[in-house]
Design a protein around this nucleic acid. Structure first.
Lengths: 205, 205
DNA sequence: GTCTATAAGAAGATAGAC
DNA sequence: GTCTATCTTCTTATAGAC
């Protein structure tokens, strides 16, 4: 891989663990296998590296979001697919979403960087909330709304349904970011949650 | 208030917003209203201030946890209190917990500091998970278990019930930490969540 | 594009007067 | 206990050879 791209990858890895300020230009260079001054041939400053990571992410996100049907723009189309949703379908969808967010290396590192930088940088706070709250809520709320309207699920507030479906996934993801070794303990709980959710909301038509 | 204590308060405020590394000794001194060198008469280093904040928190937590019945040690006693729990009781308990966590100035600042320092410091990661996951889960799981056993709520997995009850509170708290102005939008959703939860799990005896 | 050498400045901490 | 002055170290960034 070319050096310019490798700098971004190593910098993201370091920023996600130690935060922007505790990563020194020499650390990034060392991870790439060059000396610090060489790095300035590729980026004009440390801040420039950070900005390039953000730009790269913005390019990636819309693609991934639409791939995962997470952007809330096409929920009505997706609801057709889910109109005959079973408990197993919901488990598959929820576990797939959870596992992707939790294990995709790039997604995980970027989320951890957002986590530790969010209060210093309002832009990152907005990105975090959009990617991990607003977008999932908006998509899932639309989906549960359709499923309720179709009688597949009970006629309850779809915003609340989305909150109750997604929050456990989000919360356990944050725990696993801190303690990857506890993943084994929590994965079964996620599946039990989704099955219990499905049972509780099963329509009575 | 004495200077030694004020240093801790101002340092916590700064650490919670900017993280340990981006807060300079001069910033803390300035917030207190003294010059940086004076600060070394009270603490021997910047790290010493951070450690003192942690020690102070450890002294506070057990008291507050037992006050809030959050430590999971006396759930059986509390379940008696809740054995005749109504939807309004559950709303009161959930909203009280949420509002306390979200608005208590000290609790909020300490949580934000844990958030931004968690990946650098394994001790902080453990404290975060204990205070915001393990302790609430253990208490609530015991409580819902009792309420299920007493027929007040359906006989479902109490660990999952605790996860589904508490995760939305936790997740919305993290959103409000980033965007305090969105609190007005989310508080009604929290209440709707608790009422919907209560209705879904209401026992059929 | 990578290196060594180094400038420029920031930040933690100490010395010593008051 | 607070101050001014200062030391030391660390960190970003540049200069210039190869």
């Amino acid at each position: 891989m070319n050096t310019k791209k490798r700098i971004l990858d190593e910098a993201l890895t370091l920023f996600s663990e130690k935060g922007y300020s505790d990563v020194f230009v020499a650390d990034i260079a060392n991870a790439v296998g060059i000396k610090a001054p060489s790095l300035y041939k590729h980026y004009k400053s440390k801040q420039d590296i950070f900005d390039a990571i953000l730009d790269e992410m913005k390019g990636n996100y819309e693609n991934k979001a639409s791939m995962l049907n997470m952007n809330g723009n096409n929920a009505s189309a997706d609801a057709m697919v889910f109109s005959a949703v079973s408990e197993d379908d919901l488990v598959k969808m929820g576990m797939g979403l959870f596992m992707y967010f939790l294990h995709d290396d790039y997604v995980k590192k970027f989320r951890k960087m957002l986590t530790v930088e969010q209060f210093k940088n309002p832009d990152l706070a907005l990105i975090f909330t959009k990617q991990y709250a607003d977008d999932p809520f908006s998509y899932q709320s639309a989906m549960f709304g359709m499923l309720s309207a179709g009688g597949v699920l009970k006629a309850e507030n779809p915003d609340v349904m989305a909150l109750q479906f997604y929050s456990p996934l989000f919360m356990i993801m944050t725990i696993c970011d801190r303690h990857p070794e506890r993943e084994r303990e929590y994965i079964p709980l996620i599946e039990q949650h989704i099955r219990q959710f499905s049972r509780l909301y099963k329509g009575e038509n």
